[in-house]
Design a protein around this nucleic acid. Sequence first.
RNA 1: GUCCUGUUAGCUCAGUCGGUAGAGCAUCUGACUUUUAAUCAGAGGGUCAGAGGUUCGAAUCCUCUACAGGACACCA
Length: 497
Amino acid sequence: MAELTEQERVRREKLQFLEDYNITPFGERFDRNSNTKKIKETYDEYSKEELAEMDTPVLKIAGRIMTKRGKGKAGFAHIMDQHGQVQIYVRKDQLGEEAFEVFQKADLGDIIGISGTIMKTKMGELSIKVTTFTHLSKALRPLPEKYHGLKDVEERYRRRYVDLMTNEETRNTFVVRSKIIQAFRRILEEKGFMEVETPILHPILGGAAARPFKTHHNALDMPFYLRIAPELYLKRLIVGGFEGVFEIGRTFRNEGISIKHNPEFTMMELYEAYGDMESMMSLTEDLITRVAEEVLGTLQITYGDQEINLNRGWQRLHMADAVKEHVGIDFWREDMTFVEAKKFAEDKGLEIPPHFTGTGHILNLLFESYVEEKIIQPTFVYGHPIEISPLAKKNNEDGRFTDRFELIINSREYGNAFSELNNPIDQKERFEAQIKEKDLGNAEANEMDHDYIEALEYGMPPAGGLGIGIDRLIMLLTDSKSIRDVIFFPHMRHRQQ
RNA sequence: GUCCUGUUAGCUCAGUCGGUAGAGCAUCUGACUUUUAAUCAGAGGGUCAGAGGUUCGAAUCCUCUACAGGACACCA
């Protein structure tokens, strides 16, 4: 164990002081009858004089000491609970010798319970005049500086609890996170979707393009992947007869960590029997705008230095049109060949990996390289090439494209949806194409899922499906720069001892 | 994985040209019964991320290592 700092030593010595007064340093249950929010809502409207004359009840609250100012035979402190802070006013003549000494020895960070009556100070701050002071838990480490809070980014992520204690914005972000997820649940239930849970341990890789985490089950002696998407299980439920299902859950991808990527993140996926890409567009727009309205109260949002207008009626843009306009090559042309497309991309300096074998691969590459960065306002980019969409239905008029869209806002993808491929014969061929890609070195390709094909062979109704990256949406709605700011405990390397 | 930047007291930060390590908050002692980032007086607290090198002398210059932040690459 590392040596204690001076401050830690002092705080440990105070354990003995408490025990000398028969006080348990890490105490017991404390029954409260109020909290900082209720107190402000109830009493803040009254003046100092009105409060002095009112017959108010004895308030009992508990929380952490955040500031403390001694004034000789009296003192002030702010104590914080989940809802905020309130000032307490402590007088020796009210508490008595012993309890007042306990107050004087209390440190910033200690958790206490008090009872007392409401009052306002000369300066007009609502305060509780303390009649009993109960030490509840000792803090053996000092709090960060009271004015600046915890600023060190690494410390904020590694010790999120300290970040939460001292930084209001952090608390607020996670409250909003919770509200966003709640709103999704409520709206989806309202629309008749049923929340379900499907396996996180997957024997077969599928449902998205990503590198997986691998694990092993001892009793079955068999390898598993942590799911990269719940998609294929949710669609089995549609085969089974549920007509609308959704899952909000953790998904795992074994890829680089960045401002936009955490190895585990939260996805919302839903499937609607008898729907399609078009119905998913309407649903996506309705969901996100309603969530934003309910949680933020507006559809005009600011992200960084970008103004985003979420007003309904989002733009729709076919990927081939987008690339034709911004890059200047026409993938609608019937005679477009892979050789021509590849040469075009290579001339632009793009690298073409060996598993790129179709014009669709190039189209998507051009889109991601040159067009995505230009899209700021909410836009449904649709018509993704078949090569990169192994689970989406082919377009009826042009089989090179699928009925699939991605929602792009501020150059980032927030959602991915399509008319679900329900033809088992076609699906099998798509998996076979994926396996070829895997053989050519695409580490993110889907694997053959015979059981899933068998499920489709029993007949799956035409359906629309949608996935939304919840963390990124929360980033957008809370103006958070990094995904680490919306995940309580982001992953980091071990600290050297 | 590559490049750039950062790491100084519990916290927030200074530290000039290479010349004895600084401030505020916090801590400790004393004063003060309506303070507001309380004030006043005094005190204690440092492996300058770690290792090596250059130098009479390194927080400062160089190299390596660790961790972090950012950009790129990859993806959602």
